[in-house]
Amino acid sequence: MAKLTTIGIDLAKNTFALYGLGPKGQCGWKRKVRRKQLLEQLVRLEPCKVALEACGSSHYWARQIQALGHQVELLPPQHVKGYLRGQKNDYNDAQAIAEASEHGRIRPVPLKGAEQ
């Protein structure tokens, strides 16, 4: 497996889609994992940037992923939509999140602490 620089995660109720980008922006891998398996999957990877769309549960997941040593970025959903290609599905959403994060021109949403 090639070294991953950015992982986009599309959060859902039961299964999450993960899309990893390599150093040149190419697809490193894509996975679909259950809610319980997400942190197990990410702990095996070298620290990299993990991008999520900002929503109610994304702040919780961002804190958990950050504790594993990854750099977490929450992106506003309205800005990610412009990077979506093809039909809307979990993998395409995760790819759009990863590419929006790689582009670097979107201002991330500040991460909220547990008490907020």
Rank of each mutant, 00 (worst) to 15 (best):
G20T: 02
E102W: 10
I7F: 00
L74K: 11
A96N: 07
L4M: 14
A2T: 10
D93K: 02
A12M: 04
L75A: 02
Y60R: 12
G22A: 15
E53W: 03
Y19A: 04
A17M: 05
L75Q: 05
G25T: 08
E102K: 13
G25C: 05
V80E: 00
G56H: 02
G113T: 09
L4Y: 10
V50D: 06
E73F: 08
R34W: 11
Y83R: 05
H79L: 15
P108A: 13
Q37W: 07
L42C: 02
W61N: 05
Y60S: 08
V43G: 02
T15R: 13
K30W: 06
H59S: 11
S57A: 12
L45D: 03
Y91V: 06
A51F: 04
Q41H: 13
A114S: 13
N92W: 02
A2V: 07
L84F: 03
A96M: 07
Q78H: 14
V80L: 06
R63L: 14
A12N: 06
L74W: 13
Q71R: 12
A114M: 06
M1R: 11
T5A: 08
A96S: 07
W29T: 04
Q41F: 08
S58T: 14
A12V: 09
G22D: 15
E53Y: 04
Q95H: 12
V43P: 03
Q95V: 01
H70S: 11
V33L: 13
G20Y: 00
D93W: 04
L84R: 12
A114Q: 14
G82N: 14
I9N: 00
Y83M: 05
M1L: 10
A96H: 09
L42H: 02
E53K: 07
C27F: 00
R34I: 07
C55D: 08
K49S: 11
C27W: 01
L21K: 03
Q95N: 09
Q37K: 15
K13L: 12
E46D: 11
W61C: 06
K32P: 00
G69V: 08
D90N: 12
N14C: 04
L52N: 03
R63S: 11
W29I: 02
E40M: 05
L21H: 06
P76E: 00
Q26N: 15
L45P: 01
Q95L: 13
G113L: 08
K36E: 15
L68I: 08
P110K: 12
G86I: 06
G82A: 15
Q26G: 15
G56Y: 01
Q66K: 13
Q26W: 04
Q64W: 05
L45K: 14
Q116H: 12
F16T: 11
I9M: 01
L52D: 03
I9P: 02
I106V: 10
W29H: 10
R31T: 04
V50M: 12
G25M: 08
A12T: 06
D93E: 11
V43W: 02
N92M: 09
K32V: 15
V43K: 15
K49P: 01
L68K: 04
R34A: 13
E46H: 10
E73Q: 15
R63K: 07
S58M: 10
Q26K: 14
S58L: 11
G20M: 04
E102R: 15
C48Y: 01
L52M: 03
Y91R: 11
R35A: 01
R31H: 07
L39C: 13
P77T: 06
W29E: 07
N89C: 14
E46N: 12
E46V: 01
V43A: 15
